[in-house]
């Protein structure tokens, strides 16, 4: 395969990607001017947010327990002073594990959900039927999901962090006899941590619907095609989360975290 023919084959995908980025960005700022039914953003917020709530709470609680357990074991082995574990745990949860693990979970649930829905719309000609009625699939389908995901990723992360702190405090109290009052100590959280966490949530919340919407809309070929595009959406949005985590953490390390 020559580079030219590769480019030629990639051209429709690149065109779709350009539309996705441009329309979603524009749509997010001018909600009223774009073209989707009223209440669609609320419906998607329910779909993405409320229906992932239990999943995020359970997974983040267990991850909170594991992280606290591992840390306490290690600290016991070295210094034996467990009083700082809670404060440090909350700090790292806010700027790193909370947003990133929550987004990894949402990449599987929300990413797969969006790609499966849009992919089966493509292979059953529903996207063409929208076009016949002069509806742009990106304005109509992606923009509401994009806006809903941006809002709900932040909300779910907040709840998830709460669950993880609660579960972590329980683990520390039962397994290592750390007083929960000592454990739940947010004093180490700086403004820089909050800003880092916020940027991560926003970036993940934007990336997941875009990546999985792209995978869903480029599905082709029956039920096998829907399966393939859903798989690609999970893998691509999870990988996107890891790369964004790395990039934002790196930038934060040199800017926000170096401030006292």
């Amino acid at each position: 395969m020559t580079p030219i023919s590769l480019l030629h084959r990639a051209a429709p995908s690149l065109e779709l990607l350009r539309h996705l980025l441009w329309r979603s960005g524009r749509g997010a700022f001018r909600l009223r001017a774009t073209d989707f039914p009223r209440g669609e953003v609320w419906r998607q917020m329910h779909q993405i947010g409320n229906r992932s709530l239990l999943f995020v709470c359970v997974t983040l609680s267990f991850l909170g327990m594991v992280l606290v357990f591992q840390t306490c074991l290690q600290v016991n082995r070295i210094t034996g002073d467990l009083s700082q574990v809670g404060a440090e745990f909350i700090k790292i949860l806010v700027h790193e594990f909370g947003p990133s693990l929550c987004a990894m979970m949402l990449a599987t649930r929300v990413g797969a959900g969006i790609a499966a829905e849009l992919g089966s719309m493509v292979v059953t000609d529903q996207i063409d039927a929208l076009a016949m009625n002069n509806v742009d699939p990106i304005d109509y389908l992606i923009v509401p999901r994009f806006v809903a995901s941006m809002v709900m990723t932040g909300a779910l992360t907040t709840v998830g962090v709460g669950c993880a702190v609660f579960a972590g405090a329980l683990t520390a109290a039962y397994s290592f006899h750390v007083n929960p009052v000592v454990f739940v100590d947010p004093s180490h959280v700086r403004i820089g941590d909050l800003v880092t966490g916020f940027f991560k949530c926003a970036a993940y919340g934007a990336a997941i619907p875009l990546v999985s919407g792209f995978c869903g809309l480029s599905a082709q070929g029956g039920s096998a095609g829907v399966g393939r595009s859903t798989t690609r959406a999970v893998i691509a949005s999870s990988f996107m989360v890891i790369v964004l985590d790395f990039v934002i953490s790196g930038v934060a390390y040199f800017t926000l975290q170096s401030a006292p």
Partner: peptide, 13 residues
Amino acid sequence: IGMLFQNNALFDF
């Protein structure tokens, strides 16, 4: 133009 698609293309939502 009105079009009937081969696999109906009803909006399932």
